[in-house]
Nucleic acid binder design. Structure first.
Length: 328
DNA sequence: AAGCCGGCCAACCGCACGTGG
DNA sequence: TCCACGTGCGGTTGGCCGGCT
């Protein structure tokens, strides 16, 4: 059961915001900053619930919002990110400055879906619409299912049965690992040459076992969620999870923008050399299938249960003086 | 001109998650 | 460990608007 609605008060305004309400909200946030949404309406003299204020600010009033049509580049980026992340609109929005998750979600549903259909692409699987029941199709479907199973909506989908099967067979540590990865996904990724001994709160959780520029195997050890990540990816243990990190430059992502879910496969298969400077796109793949590590580390990433969970990136620039160690 | 229809999008709703007591 | 609370996310709704008949 969820919590009761936050705005059950009978005297709350609902529906479209008036100009005066907008001005009050903007003025208040300019003075006091964002946060404390529950108490904000009263403090700002608004007859709205906190959630409504937050939505109005984030989706409409924020000064850094980009207005106007989506560019072709943004279209392609959204398609690429959706093929990797599924309906994780907030994560996709994080990669498009000035765009909100709501805006991207609406744009996806009203424009891009149609665009992909016109191209003969299934917008959910990113596979050709006539793609039939080959092993590859099954793998792709599973990939999507895994990604979607991680979503919170949990609305029934045409694949819901399989999804439920997968979810129910997912061992608790994996669920915790997914949570963990999601939290990592919003963390800053920094690549530096030195300071390997510098430990932040994450570094006790994550140890890099190799530090080549092209691929990093990551072992999660004894983190606070109680997950034990085994680098071996032992075939006989469901609980043996493996992670792989591959590092790519943003340009490569665009260049490899594919109309199918093989995009990530290609990227993982042949990551380009790290540039000396700049920031990097990092994909995390979590596998709970014995093939997952193998899939991530080389030949194929379309393993049945390899799940690309989140895109890690930091749009702000971070000095990179090399690529010998990674932490986040 | 009026009615219908479909597209668009701001806003809402229900739920999950993180956190602190 | 449990519970309450605040926050954020993704799916859905409903009203507005323009095009068509």
């Amino acid at each position: 059961m969820g919590r009761s609605p936050c705005c059950e008060s009978e005297h709350m305004n609902k529906g479209a915001w008036s100009k005066e309400e907008d001005e009050r909200l903007i003025a208040y946030i300019k003075r006091h900053g964002e946060g404390c949404w529950r108490s904000l309406p009263k403090a700002a003299g608004l007859l709205r619930c906190g959630k409504s204020c937050r939505l109005r600010w984030i989706n409409y009033l924020r000064p850094d919002l980009k207005r106007g049509n989506f560019s072709d580049e943004e279209d392609e980026l959204i398609i690429t990110l959706h093929s990797l992340l599924g309906n994780k609109w907030s994560l996709i929005a994080a990669r498009l400055p000035g765009r909100t998750d709501n805006e991207i979600k609406n744009y996806w549903n009203t424009h891009i879906k149609r665009k992909l259909h016109a191209r003969g692409i299934d917008p959910q699987t990113h596979r050709p619409l006539d793609y039939t029941s080959t092993a590859g199709a099954a793998a792709a479907a599973t990939h999507t299912i895994c990604s979607n199973a991680n979503n919170s909506g949990n609305k029934a989908t045409p694949h819901s049965t399989t999804c439920e099967e997968l979810s129910s067979s997912t061992p608790p540590p994996l669920r915790a690992a997914k949570k963990r990865l999601n939290s990592l996904a919003s963390a800053v990724v920094t690549v530096r040459e030195e300071e390997e001994s510098t430990n932040n709160s994450m570094s006790s959780d994550v140890t890099t076992t190799t530090t080549t520029a092209e691929e990093v195997q990551v072992q999660l050890i004894n983190n606070k969620n109680g997950i034990n990540m085994d680098e071996d990816g032992d075939a006989n243990a469901d609980l043996d999870l493996s992670l792989c990190l591959s590092v790519h430059s943003p340009k490569t992502i665009i260049r490899n923008n594919s109309t199918s879910s093989t995009a990530s496969t290609e990227l993982l298969r042949s990551p380009p050399p790290l540039p000396a400077h700049g920031h990097h796109e990092v994909f995390l793949s979590l596998g709970f299938h014995p093939d997952a590590r193998h899939a991530c580390s080389g030949t194929s990433c379309s393993a049945p249960t390899a799940t690309t969970l989140d895109l890690l990136s930091d749009p702000s620039s971070h000095p990179i003086s090399g690529a010998s160690s990674y932490w986040f």
